Amino acid sequence: MRGAVYDQARARWIAAEAVRGGAAAKNRPADLINVALEKVVEAGLELPAFSTFDTMAAKIRTEVNTSVCAGIHDRMSAAERAGLLEVRDTDGTTLFNRLKKPTQGPS
């Protein structure tokens, strides 16, 4: 068995691709970091610093989430987008406010 190879550029590239692929299905930074760690170890490379993984996961997760939101926005008509912000209730709550509420736990 050989030791880990020092190639930080390749390790970062592999980690970034793993995070980018995982971000479509996972949103927690810890899960994304674990995916990246697994791929870098599989490649037999020396691990970058944890802060590198942490920063990378946050940045790429933001990019992927922004892309998902933009895709949803683009699929909605102008009337649908306007409907999200119309006042629906006497307390001023809009449909958009209701969409942002977290779901209830299973009962």
Score class of each variant (00 low, 15 high):
1 M>N: 10
4 A>K: 02
6 Y>T: 13
6 Y>D: 10
10 R>M: 11
11 A>Y: 06
11 A>V: 04
13 W>G: 07
14 I>T: 07
14 I>F: 05
14 I>M: 05
17 E>A: 07
18 A>K: 04
19 V>A: 09
19 V>L: 06
19 V>R: 06
21 G>A: 04
21 G>L: 04
22 G>C: 01
22 G>D: 05
23 A>Y: 08
24 A>G: 07
24 A>S: 11
24 A>C: 07
25 A>E: 13
25 A>Q: 12
25 A>F: 15
29 P>F: 03
29 P>T: 03
30 A>V: 14
31 D>S: 06
32 L>I: 00
33 I>M: 04
33 I>G: 02
34 N>I: 13
35 V>H: 12
36 A>S: 01
37 L>V: 03
38 E>K: 11
38 E>I: 08
38 E>V: 06
43 A>F: 02
43 A>M: 02
43 A>C: 03
43 A>S: 05
43 A>V: 02
43 A>Y: 02
43 A>I: 01
44 G>R: 10
44 G>P: 01
45 L>A: 02
46 E>I: 10
46 E>R: 12
47 L>V: 09
48 P>S: 02
48 P>G: 03
49 A>Q: 13
50 F>L: 03
51 S>E: 11
51 S>P: 00
52 T>Y: 05
52 T>N: 09
52 T>G: 06
54 D>A: 02
55 T>P: 00
56 M>V: 06
56 M>A: 03
57 A>K: 01
57 A>E: 04
58 A>H: 13
58 A>R: 12
58 A>W: 14
59 K>T: 12
60 I>E: 01
60 I>D: 00
61 R>D: 09
62 T>K: 08
63 E>P: 00
63 E>A: 10
63 E>K: 07
64 V>G: 09
65 N>D: 09
66 T>P: 00
68 V>H: 14
69 C>T: 15
69 C>N: 12
69 C>W: 15
70 A>L: 12
70 A>F: 14
71 G>W: 07
71 G>Q: 11
73 H>E: 14
74 D>F: 12
74 D>I: 14
76 M>A: 02
77 S>T: 15
77 S>D: 09
77 S>R: 08
78 A>K: 11
79 A>H: 12
80 E>P: 05
80 E>T: 14
84 L>I: 07
85 L>N: 10
86 E>C: 06
86 E>M: 10
88 R>L: 15
89 D>R: 15
89 D>S: 12
90 T>N: 08
91 D>W: 07
94 T>A: 05
94 T>W: 09
95 L>G: 05
96 F>W: 15
96 F>L: 13
96 F>P: 00
98 R>N: 09
98 R>E: 14
101 K>T: 15
102 P>A: 05
102 P>K: 08
103 T>I: 15
103 T>V: 14
104 Q>D: 11
107 S>I: 09
